[in-house]
Computed example of a mutant assay.
Amino acid sequence: MTVQECAEIVERGDPDRLVAAMSAPVPDREVLFPLYAFNLEIARAPWLTQEPLIAEMRLQFWRDVLDEIEQGKTPRAHEVVAPLGAAIHARAIPLAPLRAMIDARRADIAREPFVAPADLWDYINAGAGSLMFASVAALGRTDEAEARVLGRVQGLAAWLEAQPELLAHGWRAFDAGFYPEMIDVALADLRSVRGHDFGKATPAARAASRAGAILKRAKADPDAIIEGRLSESEFARRGRFLWKTLRGRW
């Protein structure tokens, strides 16, 4: 139950946040990797079974974990739990956004369509918005509104990238006709925070560094969303992160 095991989980499942975390000083990596591994564990839970009750039980496990961390109880035997608890206590990470991230995944279990853009925005804010807020808070940034704006932008980009996989799993979650409007909102939000300095929390903010490019491709070529052509090459991905890291940008 080590931070290294959390890093290995992130390496396998979330390359953007892996590189973002690696751009942080070592003490901050020891906080970011457990948070990002926690996110992956709850994100996987609804997709590991076709039984909604079992999926809900997996999410309940993580609700109980957060309650036990809050109460200072002995960590459960899971590779993420002890490092997560240590990070939460060391940096006073708020638990409310972590609980919101778990609750958001109930939509992944139900796999019902979102009716309007506001419903999808709520889902993204509870998931990606909460993770961004928790991760920048862990690095000392206290502006929740700004963090959530950036998290929602990143979350919409990730949602669009994931559409082919979600459709393959039979989840037609949203009317694609609403995407142009949502993309315009997200790009405007990104411009609103682009010049902001996240200070020591810049590595956490850097997890959203590809969002703008993804959203611009989706705006220019809507068919790329369903056809799975939004992602850039691994070489371009790593080059973008390196360029921003060397310049201290997110």
Rank of each mutant, 00 (worst) to 15 (best):
C6L: 04
L120W: 11
L215S: 09
R29F: 14
W243N: 01
L18R: 05
D184C: 04
A158S: 12
A168L: 10
V149M: 12
K219I: 07
Q154R: 08
D108R: 01
A188P: 07
R12V: 04
R63S: 13
V193D: 02
I109Q: 01
A126N: 03
R141C: 15
A205Y: 11
A20N: 04
V149A: 11
G13Y: 13
L160R: 01
R141E: 15
M22V: 10
W62R: 04
V19I: 12
I93F: 02
V65H: 02
I93W: 01
V149W: 15
R106V: 14
Y36P: 11
D16P: 06
P113Y: 14
F235D: 04
A224K: 00
D223T: 14
K244V: 08
A173N: 11
K200I: 05
H89Q: 01
A138C: 05
D67S: 03
G13I: 07
D223P: 00
A204S: 12
W243T: 03
A20K: 01
R58V: 13
P164I: 05
V31Q: 01
M57P: 00
Y179K: 01
M182N: 04
K244E: 14
E41D: 09
G170N: 07
E30L: 03
A96T: 15
V149H: 14
D197T: 09
E161P: 00
A162W: 08
L18F: 15
P222E: 12
G151R: 00
G13A: 08
A186V: 06
D64A: 10
E165L: 15
S23R: 00
A176D: 13
D221C: 04
M101R: 01
A162S: 13
V136R: 03
K200R: 05
H169C: 09
P164R: 00
G129L: 07
G13K: 02
S233T: 14
V26K: 06
A220I: 05
F198W: 02
G140T: 08
A173D: 15
L156Y: 03
S23F: 11
P27D: 12
I54H: 02
R58Y: 13
A107E: 09
A213Q: 08
G199S: 10
A158Q: 07
Q154D: 05
R217W: 02
I109E: 03
H169P: 02
G177I: 10
S209F: 02
A157V: 12
A236E: 12
F114W: 04
L32K: 05
P222T: 12
G151E: 01
V3L: 11
D189Y: 06
G212T: 07
L18H: 10
A107Q: 06
R99V: 14
L230H: 04
I69W: 07
A118W: 00
V10D: 05
L66H: 10
V65N: 03
Q163A: 14
L35D: 10
R172P: 05
A24H: 01
A90F: 10
F174E: 04
K216N: 03
A204P: 00
A207D: 05
R148T: 13
G195E: 15
L156W: 02
A176H: 10
K73D: 13
L167Q: 07
